[in-house]
Amino acid sequence: MPNASPFERLPCRPQATVTVFVEDTPIEVSQHDSAAAAVLAAGLLPSRTTPASEAPRAPYCLMGVCFECLIEIDGAPNQQGCMIPVREGMRIRRQCGARDMHGEDHHGVA
C-alpha cells in the first residue's frame, strides 16, 4: 500500500520498528506508535464509516476524546486506535458501517 497520506512524521532519532498489517499490507512503524498513527502512516483514509450514514471518518484528536479512530484490531471491532500501542504482527482493518454486535464470536462475524 503506497503511502499516499498527507501525514508526515516530525524528524526524530531513529527508533526501533515493528511490522503491522494494515488491510493485510505489511508496514513498518515505530514501536511507540498507536494503531491510529499506523493507519495514518499507511494512508488508510477514511479509516472507518459511520453506522447510520456511512460518512467517512479518520483519526482526529489522537488523545482518546473524539472516538473518530474506531478501527478493527486483530479481529475485534470498535477499538479506539489512538489509545492502543502497536505490537509486532498486529492486524488493523477499516471499520465500515454498522457492526453485528450479537454475532457468534462477538467480533462482527456471524
Rank of each mutant, 00 (worst) to 15 (best):
E68K: 11
S30G: 09
S53W: 13
T50Y: 09
V22S: 00
H102E: 13
V29C: 01
P85L: 10
Q95R: 03
F67K: 09
A35R: 00
E28N: 03
V65K: 12
C66G: 07
S47K: 04
R87C: 08
V109T: 14
L40R: 10
L70P: 03
E72A: 08
A16R: 13
E8T: 15
Q95N: 03
V29M: 00
R9E: 15
C12G: 15
R87P: 04
A36C: 05
I84W: 02
R93S: 08
R9A: 14
I73E: 01
G103E: 10
A52C: 11
A98N: 06
A38M: 01
E28Q: 11
C69R: 03
R93Q: 11
M101H: 15
D24M: 09
A35E: 00
R48T: 02
P14T: 02
N78D: 11
C82R: 12
V20D: 01
I73M: 03
E72D: 08
G81V: 01
L44G: 00
G108Y: 08
G75M: 11
P11F: 06
C12P: 02
V39G: 07
C66A: 09
P14Y: 02
M90S: 10
A42R: 00
V86D: 03
M1F: 08
Y60A: 14
P56C: 12
P26E: 01
A52K: 15
L40N: 04
Y60P: 08
